[in-house]
Design a protein around this nucleic acid. Structure first.
Lengths: 152, 152
DNA sequence: TGTTATGTTCAATATATATTGAACATACAG
DNA sequence: CTGTATGTTCAATATATATTGAACATAACA
């Protein structure tokens, strides 16, 4: 049963756009009472060493998982946190933030190209002006959303 | 210059996760004073007939573009709308909505599997309970966000 | 210090997703 | 009704992204 949940979680994380492994890893740890090491994750999920290592660190960066030291054991153990809300916020901030950045750099390129533009392209200039005004509003909205997310 | 903007828009839409063609198409129409037909789009962007057709209809569904009839001409012409805010909202609703749906169906599967679960898995049951509570809160938040987006 | 167990990196590869284009559908003109 | 110009569909293919795994790094211990 739990095996199936993990499988489903992998499919879901995949369609959410963060790759199959992350979902599987988190679900595996989330449903495990004891912390697990990389070898166990690899074995349980049938994934590679590299994926387990990379994936679990990504989860850690999102605060989805914490590292546990077990004395006398060289291996790194990991356990899922269950602050689901917190985790989701971080993931959204991270993912959406990257998208924001990509969009912003597009706008910067447009603005950089603007001076080179011939005067006859007044329609284009106007549209760019619209775009810029929209960008300013959207930027402010996004920043206030960031504040809300962080404060709450 | 405008050619470059269109190119950039394609790269941006790609990294935003909606494919290169949609960005190119919208930018092309957004910077064109006159409406354009499918053949022109195809020609200007170097894309296939299929892509032009499919892409422009997707844009239309998002309200990013409107169809124009020119009398005496059999072809369909399209023109960009410049309600950028409105468009962005629709796109986000659509994209995020699909993701929501995928996540929701995951949760449904988990709930469906629950009765089959052995009693000894009390830890798993507890975690599922957490998950469900989180889901309810998140669902409400999402719905209120929907309302805000639609009302404003 | 050298040996071993573990974790990390990144070029090669597999997988998922977007795009193409040829076959098909549609509708207007003659 | 037939021929032609246009739009659509979807299996094949190309592209972008995620995953693998062998080589490398690191640190604990003898």
């Amino acid at each position: 049963m739990v095996r199936r949940f993990i499988e489903d979680a992998g499919n879901t994380s995949q369609s959410l756009g963060v790759g199959r492994v992350l979902g599987q890893l988190f679900a595996y740890l989330y449903f495990s009472p004891e912390p697990k090491n990389l070898a166990e994750m690899q074995e349980a999920l049938g994934i590679s060493k590299g994926s387990a290592s990379t994936g679990v660190r990504q989860l850690e960066q999102w605060g989805a998982v914490k590292k546990i030291w077990i004395k006398g054991d060289r291996k790194d153990y990991y356990q899922a946190n269950d602050w689901l809300g917190k985790i989701l916020k971080k993931v959204i901030l991270d993912v959406a933030g990257k998208k924001m950045a990509s969009y912003k750099s597009f706008l910067e390129e447009v603005e950089a190209g603007l001076p080179e533009m011939k005067d006859e392209d007044s329609f284009v200039r106007e549209r760019i002006e619209h775009l810029r005004r929209f960008h300013n509003r959207a930027q402010k909205l996004w920043e206030s959303a960031l504040v809300k997310i962080f404060v709450k």
